[in-house]
Design a protein around this nucleic acid. Structure first.
Lengths: 213, 213, 213, 213
DNA sequence: CATGAATGAGAGTTCATTCAT
DNA sequence: AATGAATGAACTCTCATTCAT
């Protein structure tokens, strides 16, 4: 009995405590979203902690209840966003008997373009503001780039084996492709009404066949 | 003429004044170069005015005798550097009876790659550190990008008229090309011993013919 | 009686209320003891309320249910500790027909040394950390010192009347004695295995006969 | 000529620069003295950097031009003060054929008492406020105490060899003496008009002959 | 022109205390 | 009574810029 009573508080682990945890998570998300908005609007360095807590409507101390520092919340955002992008890229089937590479990549490209298009702040942050802020951030971005490059590189090698890709310096070309994709993404940021489907096709055709007659 | 106008205020002996101006100009350049070194090594935000005056071996106040602010000297540097790059690009002959485009562009590409390769600090600054610092800087970089894009765009249209370029969305493709170039430049920053001639060819071949068999 | 008065407000079953009071008192003590541990380990200023509630395993708010503030609990601790010490000192018989002063004092001295030795945290707190924290704390310590001094002073005067103490400035000498005692106590804090009996004798002999041949 | 001209600025190393250095040193001293006043009045923890710069009539940044941190200036003060005290103590001749120890020590004791008496803030700081602030400060004070103890200890041993000091536990007794001195010093802080000569004699007599008839 | 000491607004962070649950 | 998330005042320290010499 007494043990029951004493555990009483904890019995609600599935009630109050879980609810509390949920609330806490919601709050965290609120702050994260607020931070994303401010960071993407003003850039990391122009953003003051005051801006974030203002946007999130919380007190100064509350911010530090959820995040260790301004730098920490930024890092967490970057992690989150890179994760989201990867989800949209990795879903491509690289097996030998997969559908034609062009179709696959087109889907992937459209997905990524769409993802960026939908989540503008996210994209702005990663493409424009996140470079040169911090050694750790730079590393994360660098790693991310290298992952994307590796994925492209392997795709190209695979294509060569299948006879779809001609004899090129796959490594360098992978970088070229990555560069052209990034540039279009950058563009999309400034033109909310861009025709993504068209852009995707252009991107693909260009990468596949170049510009020569 | 212009020199007369500039010295206009001082009616003193021309020699002294000219010498003074020259000395002043030398000093300015010294500081600019010092700033370039520091900015490119540490990035804009990590660079303190103390770092610059230390590198230039001048006093704190002297710095403000030559430049209005930390931001101003950075802007001036960017201007300078963008000018240098343009010089390497614009020299391409776009007339109808010019040599084959491929050769022309290859020359141009190799020039740009080489310029960046030689002046690392410059390249690092523009590609990595200059984004998101300041609205004005962003605008300058944006304008620069647009200029490059316009030049590429016109080249493509020209190529189409000459029958060298197939029927593509020239505007978007121009961005793609720009992106692939920038990406390779970025790479070059980290690999001082990269084979620029090879990279230039890869870049060109990729852009001309894509990857398709 | 007094318990009746205190419980006066609550006309409920005496048992429940008494038990509640007891529980409350136990909790208070728990917190006090936890605070003593932390304060003596880290010092007043390095101690966070978080440290105390962590050590006591209570919630943040609970702390303020039992004590008004961090300062208040510290003050209460000091009071408690000074009381304990006094109990060990005051027990000396100052009547005319008491046993030889030397023996009495020796007993007392050993008691105090032992008390401090046993309750390190207490001693550390009072001797090392409590000075300069707060006007109120300083006053309490000052008063305590003055009480000890008065007791010593009276003992000396008494000793003079009995012919055991020579013609000295009793007031100043009382301070000297107090000082030498405190110094040895301070030492003992750092040497847990000190020979207290020996130290007590040394202290006494020194105070009685000085160092002269 | 030009070399002369160029060195011209530096030729004044003995003029302007030296003057500048002197001015700088004066300013430093001003701030140190201001800090001493505030620290001794309010204690380390109650003292804000704002208080110091207010007392010294300098700007916030100026403070950090001269001292690394609040802690650093405090440490420097402590060093300075301990140095001053040592100067007053060490001047005692411990050679075999020196004047009678009593006279020597009396001089020394009076000196120290006087030094403390004259420089109240100093004394208050060291005796009352400096304990428990900082590991480094604690170490400095501890070392200082040990130095004093060592000096006393050696004096006692010396006295024993000369037959002036009876057979006592010199080490412990040295601590006792130190304690009685410190206690009187403490007292003196609160009584500006204390008769130092008298106190010195009392102290000495007590330490030499104790209180026994 | 050159200097560098002085400035002070403003940043990020801490932590004792409160209060809704 | 117990909880712990929320609060915000107050802190120390930085650094671009100014200005008397």
């Amino acid at each position: 009995m007494s043990s029951q009573a004493e555990v009483g508080d904890r019995t609600e682990v599935d009630g109050r405590t879980k609810a509390a945890l949920k609330k806490r998570e919601r709050r965290r998300t609120t702050v994260l979203e607020a931070a994303l908005r401010v960071f993407s609007a003003k850039g990391y360095h122009q953003t003051r902690v005051s801006d974030i807590i203002g946007e999130a409507s919380i007190a100064r101390g509350t911010f530090y209840l959820y995040f260790d520092s301004k730098n920490a919340i930024f890092l967490e955002l970057i992690d989150l966003l890179l994760e989201r992008i990867k989800e949209n890229v990795v879903g491509v089937d690289q097996s030998d008997d997969a559908p034609p590479m062009r179709d696959q990549i087109l889907v992937s490209v459209r997905r990524v373009l769409g993802a960026f298009q939908q989540d503008r702040p996210l994209a702005k942050l990663i493409l424009r503001e996140a470079v040169g802020i911090d050694a750790e951030v730079d590393k994360k971005l660098g790693d991310f780039h290298r992952q994307l490059h590796t994925w492209l590189h392997l795709s190209l090698l695979n294509g060569q084996q299948l006879g779809f890709v001609r004899d090129v310096d796959t490594e360098s070309v992978a970088w070229c492709i990555l560069g052209s994709v990034k540039q279009l993404l950058w563009l999309v940021l400034d033109e909310p009404d861009a025709d993504l489907d068209h852009l995707g096709e252009v991107l693909l055709d260009f990468n596949l066949d170049g510009i020569r007659t």
